[in-house]
Each structure stands twice: as structure tokens, then as C-alpha cells.
Computed example of a mutant assay.
Amino acid sequence: MHRISIETVQDDTSLRAWAEVVDAADVWGVTSFEDIRYLREVQAGRVDYVLRLEGVPVGAAFVRQPGGDGGTPCAVAGIWVLGEHRRHGLGTRLHRALSAHARGLGMEGLEFEAYESQEGALRYLGNRGYKEVARHVELVLELDGLPMPEVCPPPGITFTTREGRDDLLPGMYQVALEAIPDMPVDEADEVGTFEEWRASDIDRPIHTPDLTFVALHGAEVVGYAVLQRARRGVAFHSLTGVKRAWRGRGIASALKRAQIAGAKKAGFKRLVTENVVGNAPIRHLNEVMGYRPLPGAIVFRGPLL
């Protein structure tokens, strides 16, 4: 009989164990220990768990309250189990722990994300009544051997990075207030207050200022684009947004080229982006720039155990 225990993450030692499991089990791995620690501070009601088998960490999970002010009472969650320990009920044990905490938060269900390539996870969720609510296309651009793109902002537009320019944040927030609600999804993310937006979209350790590009018309911020620093030579595209009145002028594509150039200069090997299936314009832009599809991500919602 194996000795199995589930502990709530309380300190950096247990959090490092959590991060090591996720880094080994996740499709992309953990961006950084510092980023996970930051998320624990800003995400409401978040709890992280480590599952140990004979004292060795082999599973990890988290659950937190959903963002926004309303919508479905469904907590956001994640479960990871090291490959050699799957199909032995360990994920279900973590699922029960997540369900108990979510129930205490007044939630009625859980939301998980799984990749098309994770057949076991898809089968697990389907067998427990989870239904697909959204699907995202994953695309990758290999940077090795790619010519350095020429970055030419449209006439009247200048680009700068956010490094040392906190004065640009109010203008960037105004872009977010238009760009995020316009995403073609059934339930667009809530932008929240300026402080909430800054905490989630700007101040995370992976959102470094030198890889945040801002489009200016004079002193007005008309668009911006953020790259997330990941591990293993990978960087992820975060939001690329342009104000409604300035769309259709090539600002988004020029920002994308600035990101590619910035990633190459920073030594990254791959750029990964995620687009909702219905966002045809940005998907077309990415394809034109040479991004190639990967197995996509699916968002599921279902009942508590």
C-alpha cells in the first residue's frame, strides 16, 4: 500500500515542489517560480496543492475564484500528475480536493484547460461530465534562421518599449478597455479596474517591460503588445491590442514584427501564440507571418466531485 498525502502549499519549499511537478508534467511547463509566487498573491481565493507518493512530489493542482464580476459560478483549476504515475487515481484525489475548496467558495463547478494532444486528460474530463466551452488555436514561430524583421510603424505612429515608462500605463489601460471586450469569444475576460488590469496584465514577472511594445500617436497610446518570458527558449504572445479608431492601419502587424525582432534579440528560439478559433483577422495575420499550428487548447467546465 503506497503512502499518499496531499498538502496545501504554505511556503516557498512546497511551492518549489509544486513548480517542479508542473514544469515536468505540463505541455509548456512553468514560466518561473517567481511568477507562480506572484500569482498566488494576486489571484483571489487561490489554493495550491502538492500530492506526494512515499514523500516524493508527483502531483500538483490549484484552484481559484473566476475573474470578473459575474457569469458562471465556476472556479478555475488545474491538475498535473507526472506521466509515470497517471491512471492510478492520483488526479482524482486532487480533483476531490479542488472540488471541496471550490464548494467552500460557493462555486458550482470547475473550469479546466487541456490540450488536444492530451488524450488521457480529454478522456478523464469527458467521463466526468465536463463539456467544451471554448477552443484556442496554438501557433508557433521558429526563430532560428528567421531573418530579422524590419519594423516600420505606419505613418504618424512611433513605437517605444514600456521600460522606464510607467507614464504610459493609463493610456495602455484605455487600449485594453476597448481591445479585450472586442475579442470574439462568448465570455470575454473582464478588464477590471486599472489596479486589477495592472496586476494581471502588466506587473507579472514574466511581463518584462523591455518586451512590451507601445504604439504612440504623439502622446496618445493607440496600441500595445506584450511578450511573456517563458522557459526553454520560448516566449509567449500576450495581448496585442489597438484602439478601435486606429484599427486597419497596420499597427497590429507592425507591433507583431517588433515582438519578433525583440524576441530574436533577446535570444529566444520559439514564439508561441494562442488565438480563439473565431478570431479570423489575427489568425490570418499570424499565418502570413509564418506561424504554424500546434495542437490547440480546449476549455472545459463541469461539476464538482
Rank of each mutant, 00 (worst) to 15 (best):
R3K: 12
I6L: 08
A25H: 08
S32K: 05
F33Y: 06
E41M: 07
R46S: 06
R46D: 12
R46W: 08
L51E: 08
E54G: 10
E54I: 02
V58Q: 09
Q65L: 13
G67Q: 09
G70E: 12
V76W: 07
I79G: 01
L90T: 01
H95K: 06
R96E: 05
A97M: 08
S99G: 10
E108S: 13
E111W: 06
S117W: 11
L122E: 03
N127P: 00
G129H: 06
G129F: 06
Y130K: 01
A134Q: 10
E142A: 07
L143S: 05
L143F: 00
L146G: 02
V151G: 00
C152F: 02
P153H: 02
P154T: 14
P154K: 15
T158Y: 15
T160S: 13
R162M: 15
D186L: 04
A188L: 12
D189E: 15
V191E: 07
G192V: 00
G192R: 03
G192N: 02
T193E: 06
A199D: 00
S200F: 00
D203M: 03
A215T: 14
A215C: 10
A219I: 03
A219E: 05
G223L: 14
V226Q: 03
G233T: 02
T240N: 04
T240G: 03
G241D: 06
W246K: 06
A252C: 04
A254E: 05
G262T: 04
A263Q: 02
R270S: 04
V272Q: 08
G278V: 07
G278N: 12
I282V: 10
H284N: 11
N286I: 01
M289L: 14
M289A: 09
G290L: 07
G290S: 10
L294D: 11
P295V: 14
G296N: 11
F300M: 03
F300Q: 01
L305E: 09
